[in-house]
Amino acid sequence: GDWICPDKKCGNVNFARRTSCNRCG
């Protein structure tokens, strides 16, 4: 399913099809 970026500065939910965090950094 969808997953949350492990980066504390991010924390946005990513679609399951993504293999990396979206809009992190």
Results as ranks from 00 to 15, higher is better:
Arg23Asp: 14
Arg17Val: 12
Ile4Leu: 10
Ile4Pro: 01
Lys8Ala: 12
Phe15Asn: 15
Cys5Pro: 02
Asn14Trp: 00
Cys21Asn: 01
Cys5Val: 02
Lys9Met: 15
Thr19Ser: 11
Gly11Asn: 01
Pro6Lys: 12
Cys10Ser: 05
Cys10Val: 03
Gly25Trp: 03
Arg23Phe: 10
Thr19Gly: 07
Lys8Asp: 10
Cys24Val: 01
Cys10Glu: 02
Ser20Asp: 10
Asn14Thr: 04
Arg17Trp: 10
Gly1Asp: 08
Asp2Thr: 09
Asn12Ser: 09
Arg23Ile: 15
Gly25Ile: 01
Gly1Pro: 06
Phe15Ala: 13
Asn14Gln: 04
Lys8Val: 04
Ile4Gln: 08
Arg17Lys: 15
Cys10Ala: 03
Val13Met: 14
Lys9Glu: 09
Asp7Met: 04
Phe15Leu: 11
Lys9Pro: 07
Cys5Thr: 00
Asn22Arg: 13
Val13His: 04
Arg17Glu: 14
Asp2Gly: 05
Ser20Gln: 09
Asp7Asn: 09
Pro6Gln: 14
Trp3Met: 09
Arg18Pro: 09
Cys5Asn: 01
Ser20Cys: 11
Gly11Ser: 12
Cys24His: 05
Arg23Ala: 12
Asn12Pro: 00
Gly1Val: 10
Lys8Tyr: 07
Ala16His: 12
Arg17Pro: 15
Arg18Lys: 12
Lys8Gly: 13
Cys10Pro: 03
Gly1Asn: 10
Arg18Asp: 15
Ala16Asn: 10
Arg18Ala: 15
Asn22Gly: 14
Ala16Phe: 12
Val13Pro: 15
Ser20Phe: 08
Pro6Ile: 13
Cys21Lys: 00
Asn12His: 11
Lys9Cys: 05
Lys9Phe: 04
Asn14Leu: 02
Thr19Leu: 09
Asn12Arg: 07
Trp3Phe: 08
Arg18Ile: 15
Asn12Glu: 13
Arg23Trp: 06
Asn22Met: 15
Asp7Glu: 10
Asn14Cys: 03
Trp3Ala: 02
Pro6Asp: 14
Cys21Met: 01
Val13Ser: 09
Trp3Tyr: 06
Cys24Ile: 00
Cys5Ile: 03
Asn12Thr: 11
Asn22His: 14
Cys10Phe: 02
Gly11Tyr: 07
Gly25Met: 06
Gly25Phe: 05
Ile4Lys: 10
Asn22Thr: 13
Lys8His: 04
Gly1His: 01
Pro6Trp: 10
Phe15Gly: 14
Gly11His: 05
Arg23Leu: 13
Gly1Tyr: 05
Cys21Ala: 02
Lys8Leu: 06
Val13Trp: 07
Asn22Asp: 15
Phe15Ile: 15
Asp7Arg: 08
Phe15Tyr: 15
Gly1Thr: 14
Ile4Glu: 10
Trp3Arg: 06
Phe15Arg: 10
Ser20Tyr: 09
Val13Tyr: 10
Ser20His: 13
Val13Asn: 09
Cys21Gln: 00
Trp3Lys: 04
Cys10His: 03
Thr19Asn: 09
Trp3Asp: 02
Ser20Thr: 14
Lys8Phe: 06
Gly11Arg: 12
Arg23Val: 12
Thr19Ile: 09
Ser20Lys: 12
Cys10Gly: 04
Trp3Val: 00
Cys24Met: 02
Gly25Ala: 05
Asn22Cys: 06
Ile4Tyr: 00
Asp7Cys: 01
Trp3Gln: 08
Asn14Val: 03
Asn22Ile: 11
Cys10Asp: 06
Asp2Leu: 00
Thr19Arg: 06
Asp7Ile: 03
Asn12Lys: 11
Cys21His: 00
Gly11Phe: 06
Asp7Thr: 02
Asn12Cys: 04
Trp3Cys: 07
Ser20Ile: 08
Asp2Gln: 05
Ile4Arg: 06
Asn14Arg: 01
Ala16Gln: 13
Lys9Asn: 10
Asp7His: 08
Gly1Cys: 07
Val13Ala: 10
Asn14Tyr: 02
Cys24Trp: 00
Cys24Glu: 05
Gly25Arg: 04
Cys21Tyr: 00
Asn14Asp: 05
Asn22Pro: 08
Lys8Pro: 08
Thr19Met: 08
Cys21Asp: 07
Cys21Pro: 00
Ala16Val: 08
Ile4Thr: 10
Thr19Asp: 13
Phe15Glu: 15
Thr19Gln: 06
Cys24Gln: 01
Pro6Asn: 11
Asn22Val: 13
Lys8Gln: 06
Lys9Ser: 10
Arg23Thr: 10
Asp7Lys: 03
Gly11Lys: 01
Asp2Phe: 00
Cys5Gly: 01
Asp7Tyr: 08
Phe15Met: 14
Asp2Ala: 03
Asp7Val: 05
Cys21Gly: 02
Phe15Trp: 08
Gly25Ser: 07
Gly11Glu: 03
Gly25His: 09
Ala16Arg: 07
Asn12Gly: 06
Cys21Ser: 01
Gly1Trp: 01
Gly11Met: 11
Cys24Asp: 02
Val13Gln: 09
Arg23Pro: 03
Thr19Trp: 05
Pro6Met: 13
Cys21Arg: 01
Asn14Ala: 02
Ala16Asp: 12
Lys9Asp: 15
Asn14Phe: 01
Asp2Ile: 03
Ala16Pro: 11
Asn14Glu: 05
Phe15Ser: 14
Gly25Tyr: 02
Cys24Arg: 00
Phe15Gln: 11
Cys21Glu: 03
Asp7Pro: 02
Ile4Met: 08
Ala16Tyr: 10
Cys10Leu: 01
Arg17Asn: 14
Gly25Cys: 07
Arg17Phe: 13
Ile4Phe: 07
Phe15Val: 14
Lys8Ser: 10
Arg18Gln: 15
Ile4Val: 14
Gly1Ile: 11
Gly11Gln: 13
